[in-house]
Amino acid sequence: MALTGMREVLAQSLQELMEQDERIIVMDADLATANGTFGLRKIFPDRAIDVGISEANMASMAAGMSAYGMKPFIVTFTAFASRRICDQLAISCSYAKQNVKIIATDAGVTAQTNGGTHMSLEDIGIVRSIPGTVVLDMVDGIQLKKALPVIHEYKGVVYVRMVRKETPDVFDESYEFNLFKGTKVKSGKDLTIIASGIMVHEAIMAEAELKEAGIDAEIIAIHCIKPIDQDIILESARKTGKVITLDNHNIHGGLYSAVTEVLSEKYPVHVKGIGIKNHFGEVGSTRFLMEKYGIAKEDIVREAKILCGN
């Protein structure tokens, strides 16, 4: 699979949107170089702003700008886009019904050597719990490019979780983005694997090994964790009767929680959650951390075989 630089896609897509809509404001909190958006300041000096290391203030500024008809995008690491500005997201943005987009980079273990303080494994749970929010976990650069114009048109608080650096492409240019609908990446009859973000690629790699073991796995890519696509989850669960969820996030509050909330009420089946279990992050490569926390391809294959009785 080809690799795409996510921050390059982000910067290019924001530039195109800013050229089309002069109401768009992009704000960074001293991380424009890291997130790839520094170049926007040269093109739009009045609409690409560095607020300094003051993320809560940035969120409040975005809410104020929205109240005056502007369309603010705030860009920072996931830890600062969720934990640090939770109150501002809840009250200034969502409670006040403002039109604010939060671009949160370095999702989960992809923060790598930035370590535990900069590695948010709970951001989805935090933002999901705030009424009125939409929570997305981008799969690859192609999806991000297709998603941003749609997100721009949606009025409300949208939290976009993404990898900052390169990530493998799952989709190709024929992919069509639907804000609230998941995607069936592969059909299968024995087991449903539901994944978001970088875990979709991990599911694809695991599926190849499961096929050799005689397990026909269905793969569902969920980019919109709130509100989640109940129809695609229920359709697949009814067919296979067994579900595994894959989180680059704490097992509490993320995709596993969202999926089991649907299935426990509407179609109870056995669901195995693969995700971070009660840990803070630490320094390490993405692959090292995935293996340490039990969310790598090998862990998916092992748990799938157990679930299927192999």
Rank of each mutant, 00 (worst) to 15 (best):
D106V: 02
I103W: 03
N57T: 06
D50K: 00
G273E: 14
L307C: 04
G275R: 04
T245K: 03
E291L: 11
K42E: 14
Q15W: 02
V262C: 04
N278D: 15
I228S: 12
I306S: 11
E209Q: 06
V75W: 01
K165I: 05
K101I: 02
V9M: 07
S54C: 15
F171R: 00
G188D: 14
V259W: 11
Y256N: 12
V283K: 11
D106A: 07
L191W: 09
E173T: 07
T105S: 11
D216M: 03
V243P: 02
V135E: 10
K305N: 10
A203K: 00
I103P: 14
A217G: 06
V163S: 14
I251A: 14
H252T: 08
V301W: 01
A111F: 08
E153L: 10
L89P: 15
E8L: 09
L14H: 08
A90E: 12
M199F: 00
G241F: 07
H270F: 04
E19L: 08
M70W: 15
P45D: 02
E22K: 10
A221H: 00
H152V: 00
F73S: 09
I103S: 12
E235Q: 11
I276M: 07
E16Q: 11
I220Q: 01
T245I: 06
G188P: 08
Q230K: 04
